[in-house]
Amino acid sequence: MTGRWWDGGAVLGPRTFAVTRADLVAYAHASGDQNPIHQDEQVALAVGLPGVIAHGMLTLGLVARAVEEWTDATPVLELGAKFTQPVVVPAEGAAEVAVTGTVKAVAEGRLTLALEVTCGGHKVLGMPKAVLDLPAASDSSGAARG
């Protein structure tokens, strides 16, 4: 790999995560979000969902994890997304969530990372974006500035 991760246009990932029903239970306990639509198929179907779905914040948490890995835990200034499509998690097996990042704007000490987050080839997040503290990134790498 040439270049640095924070160079404009750099593509990061994809980082993939397998999400199982057991992962949803673990996230429910860790986050406090015990909404039954993330654990109980009958409740999910009763409110019109296609099945048990992952917490949107679990998906965004996986995005944050991917960003942390790519950027050597550079401090995050902003993070967010719209939850546009559900991540349906089957009773057996796993849903696979894939996260890819592209370094967009780099200005005034802030680096904007545009993200793409898919499950089964379909985008599940709308406009997912992270803004990172660029000076912290370039300092922590120890690399000389060009």
């Binding site: 406090g32 015990q34 917490h55 949107g56 914040m57 902003e78 719209k82 939850f83």
Partner: peptide, 30 residues
Amino acid sequence: IVIAFGAMQAFLDDVGVDLARIVHGEQRFA
């Protein structure tokens, strides 16, 4: 979100909304 969710759940309880009828549309942090 752990802290924010606690506040959200208290709000939903206060206004009488069932959590099972809530789907998350968007979340942003600064």
